[in-house]
Amino acid sequence: MPIASEAVQFLGFYVALGAMCCALALIDLRHGIIPDALNLAIAVLGVAQAIVFGNPTDGFEALGEAAAVAVIFLLLRRLYFLLRQAEGLGLGDVKFLAAAATWVGMTGIPTLLLIATLSALAAAGSLQLAGRQMKRQTSMPFGPFLALGLLLTPAFQRWLSLI
């Protein structure tokens, strides 16, 4: 049975995204930053796949959704800081969410965040059970969990039609 050309093309884009997400997760775990170059590469790849599977207008739509997501999360980041006097979401995380929006759209961001937060909570719980003291002030890089969310959300959207 022949494999659909579109599926092979998507798999190529997805493998490249997977490599970038793995690199991003390792860098964030080791250095506590998400490099702008990786965020930009993820965004460019997302726009490219939107154009390949749609048309140039879809690429512009993906960029518009990324801009909207960036503005929303910049405002949420600022609001959290004003209320708590502490940073809750790094700027790299905000840029990553904007780049991720080129892949999953605005409607996929809640699913991505759900996957990221649940996996982060599971990791924090596992660390607590392993004997590491987890307090309110304990910080954990969120990038690896966001990367996991980005890897799973398009798979759900494309192959499982869950969202």
Rank of each mutant, 00 (worst) to 15 (best):
L40C: 10
P35Y: 14
F81N: 15
I109K: 00
G12I: 06
A147D: 02
L11D: 15
F156A: 01
W103I: 07
L113F: 07
R136M: 12
A155C: 12
A66Q: 05
P110D: 10
R136C: 08
N55F: 15
A98G: 10
N55I: 13
I72T: 03
V44Q: 05
F81S: 06
L26S: 05
P154D: 00
L24M: 14
L79N: 11
L38I: 09
I27A: 11
L121S: 08
P154Y: 00
P154L: 01
Q9N: 15
L148E: 04
L114K: 07
A98W: 00
A122D: 07
R78W: 13
C22Y: 07
P141M: 11
R136L: 11
I27C: 08
T153M: 06
Q137P: 15
A43N: 05
A50W: 01
T107H: 08
I33W: 09
R136H: 12
V8A: 08
L29K: 12
V71D: 03
G131E: 06
T57V: 15
Q85H: 08
N55K: 11
C22I: 04
Q128H: 14
L89F: 14
L121M: 11
T153F: 03
W103S: 02
R158Q: 09
D28E: 03
A116Y: 00
F60D: 12
A155R: 01
I42V: 12
Y80R: 06
G32E: 08
L63E: 09
A101K: 00
C21S: 08
F60N: 07
A37C: 05
D36M: 09
A70C: 12
L11A: 07
L76T: 12
Q128G: 06
L38M: 09
R158I: 05
L40S: 13
T153W: 03
N55P: 11
L112A: 06
L11V: 15
T102F: 00
R77T: 08
I163Q: 03
Q157T: 02
A62L: 08
I34Q: 02
T102V: 05
G143D: 04
I34L: 12
F156I: 01
T138H: 09
G54S: 11
C22T: 15
S139H: 08
A16N: 10
A70W: 01
L152T: 14
R158W: 06
T107D: 05
E6M: 14
R84S: 05
D93W: 01
T57F: 13
A41H: 07
T117L: 10
D93R: 01
C21D: 02
G105Y: 01
S161C: 11
L82Y: 06
A155T: 03
N55Q: 11
F81K: 11
R30V: 13
V94G: 01
L121T: 12
A23N: 07
C21Y: 00
F96L: 11
R30H: 10
F53H: 09
A25L: 09
E87P: 06
G54P: 14
G18Q: 04
L162M: 10
W159Y: 09
T102P: 00
S119A: 15
E6W: 11
A98D: 03
L40K: 11
I115A: 15
V69M: 10
L118N: 04
S126Q: 13
F73C: 01
A43I: 03
L97H: 01
V52K: 13
